[in-house]
Lab assay of single mutants.
Amino acid sequence: TYYTVKSGDTANKIAAQYGVSVANLRSWNGISGDLIFVGQKLIVKKG
């Protein structure tokens, strides 16, 4: 599943929404920190 980042989103918020850990969200998308951008497409695997 892909999720498009919206204004006000955070890695924590997206992870919680899908029931996954922030560490997994980072791993699936090659993100090292919490910096995400509006319009960015993230791979999300439901927990």
Rank of each mutant, 00 (worst) to 15 (best):
T1L: 14
T1C: 15
T1Q: 12
T1M: 14
T1Y: 14
Y2K: 06
Y2L: 09
Y2V: 09
Y2R: 06
Y2A: 05
Y3R: 01
Y3H: 14
Y3I: 08
T4N: 06
T4G: 03
V5R: 00
V5Q: 00
V5I: 05
V5G: 03
V5D: 02
K6Q: 13
K6V: 12
K6R: 10
K6I: 10
K6Y: 04
K6T: 08
K6S: 08
S7R: 09
S7E: 15
S7I: 14
S7V: 15
S7D: 14
S7F: 14
G8M: 05
G8K: 05
D9T: 01
D9C: 03
D9E: 03
D9S: 00
D9G: 00
D9I: 00
D9N: 01
D9V: 02
D9Q: 01
D9F: 01
D9H: 01
T10C: 05
T10N: 07
T10V: 05
T10F: 03
T10I: 04
A11V: 15
A11T: 15
A11S: 07
N12H: 14
N12G: 13
N12D: 15
N12T: 14
N12K: 14
K13L: 10
K13M: 12
K13Y: 09
I14N: 00
I14R: 00
I14F: 01
A15I: 03
A16S: 10
A16K: 12
A16P: 01
A16H: 11
A16T: 10
A16I: 12
A16C: 12
Q17V: 10
Q17Y: 12
Y18T: 07
Y18C: 10
Y18W: 14
G19A: 07
G19C: 10
G19Y: 06
G19R: 07
G19S: 08
V20S: 03
V20H: 01
V20T: 08
V20W: 02
S21A: 07
S21T: 13
S21K: 06
S21W: 03
S21G: 05
S21Q: 06
V22C: 06
V22Q: 05
V22L: 13
V22E: 10
V22D: 04
V22M: 10
V22W: 06
A23S: 10
A23P: 06
A23H: 10
A23D: 14
A23G: 09
N24V: 11
N24E: 15
N24S: 11
N24L: 13
N24Q: 15
N24I: 11
N24D: 15
N24K: 10
N24M: 13
L25Q: 00
L25G: 01
L25R: 00
R26F: 14
R26L: 15
R26I: 14
R26Q: 11
R26S: 09
S27M: 13
S27L: 14
S27N: 11
S27Q: 13
W28A: 04
W28L: 06
W28R: 01
W28D: 04
N29L: 03
N29E: 02
N29C: 03
G30I: 06
G30V: 07
G30C: 13
G30E: 11
I31C: 10
I31T: 05
I31A: 05
I31S: 05
I31Q: 05
S32D: 14
S32I: 15
S32P: 09
S32V: 15
S32Q: 14
S32H: 12
S32A: 12
G33Q: 08
G33M: 14
G33C: 08
G33A: 09
D34E: 10
D34P: 06
D34Y: 07
L35A: 13
L35K: 13
L35H: 12
I36Y: 05
I36R: 00
I36S: 02
I36M: 08
I36G: 02
I36T: 04
F37W: 11
F37C: 10
F37R: 09
F37E: 11
F37G: 06
F37M: 09
F37L: 09
V38Y: 05
V38E: 10
G39L: 03
G39S: 04
G39Q: 02
G39R: 02
Q40G: 03
Q40A: 06
Q40E: 06
Q40H: 05
Q40S: 07
K41P: 05
K41I: 15
K41M: 12
K41D: 07
K41Y: 07
K41F: 07
K41V: 15
K41S: 09
L42F: 02
L42Y: 00
L42G: 01
L42K: 01
L42D: 00
L42C: 02
I43R: 08
I43H: 05
I43G: 02
I43W: 09
I43M: 10
V44H: 00
V44S: 01
V44R: 00
V44W: 02
K45V: 11
K45E: 10
K45H: 12
K45G: 13
K45N: 12
K46F: 14
K46D: 12
K46R: 12
K46S: 11
K46C: 15
K46Q: 14
G47S: 12
G47A: 13
G47I: 13
G47E: 14
G47N: 12
